[in-house]
């Protein structure tokens, strides 16, 4: 499952600094087509920064980052969608309109098919009945799910997710994780998921990348070679969870 011959995401010696802070220093990462990679690491180690570079939001960085062979600086990031760590909703727009922002540019958001797609997404993230609500009427976890739905609406070939389930309760979280797996399997999307939840990382991912240090580098990569569908309480999963936690604790 690990990096094949033609990685969709190729990160080569990535270095990124903000003024005096060096956020990432020499990160190498290759993600194969259709692979699900989880990134874990302590707060401030540069996880969000890595996703920002991958999605083309950072203009200046060292090293080479390519998506499908095209450098992110030359439009390679067009194929990439991202769910931000914060919900970042338009507070004057209702839930439906916010999710429609994610619809691809060639889709007319007012077309019946597009509306249906948005309504489906509202159902899948468990917000049925809130289509006409505004962000200030939503809880933190609900807003986070709107943001997740917006990312899913984009239907990119590479989906970056920055702690998308962090504000959800256990049950909703499990539901949304399984739904993400459904989307990933059905569409063959390449997924990079940042999380603080080691259990989530090993349950979802083909590989867990542990970032660490100040400035951040790849400390370790743990392969999760466990057949799907997986059981959350699977003893092998629990063992891998210990392993990742141990690396994190170092």
């Amino acid at each position: 499952m690990s990096s094949g011959a033609d990685p969709v995401l190729a990160v080569d010696d990535l270095r990124k600094r903000y003024d005096d802070t060096v956020a990432l220093d020499g990160v190498d990462l290759a993600v194969a087509d259709g692979e699900f990679v989880a990134v874990v690491g302590p707060s401030g180690c540069g996880k969000s920064t890595l996703l920002r570079v991958l999605s083309g939001l950072e203009a200046e960085f060292g090293g080479r980052v390519a998506v499908d062979g095209t450098d992110v600086c030359d439009g390679g990031s067009d194929a990439v969608g991202m769910v931000f760590q914060e919900p970042r909703l338009l507070d004057w727009a209702d839930v439906r309109e916010n999710i429609a922002v994610g619809l691809p540019a060639d889709v007319d958001p007012d077309a019946p098919a597009a509306r249906e797609r948005v309504d489906d997404l509202i159902e899948t993230v468990g917000l049925g009945g809130f289509a006409d609500s505004h962000p200030d009427e939503l809880s933190g976890g609900m807003a986070q799910r709107v943001s997740l739905a917006r990312g899913l609406a984009y239907n990119p070939s590479v989906l970056l997710l920055d702690e998308p389930f962090s504000a959800l309760d256990r049950l909703t979280k499990a539901d949304q994780q399984d739904h993400l797996l459904d989307v990933w399997e059905a569409r063959g999307t390449t997924v990079v998921l940042v999380t603080h939840d080691v259990e989530e990382a090993v349950y979802l991912a083909d590989r867990v990348v542990v970032l660490g240090g100040q400035p951040g580098t790849v400390e370790s990569v743990v392969d999760v070679d466990i057949d799907r569908p997986r059981e959350r309480a699977d003893t092998e999963l629990v063992a891998l969870r210990r392993e990742v936690t141990a690396v994190l604790g170092r």
Binding site: G56, L57, R88, L90, V101, A105
Partner: peptide
Amino acid sequence: ELLEVAEVYDLGRVESLRRVVFPA
């Protein structure tokens, strides 16, 4: 942060003005 959302979801110049900048 909202302008970055418009950028990531490839809204384009006109659409990001119409849907993000002017309403804001």
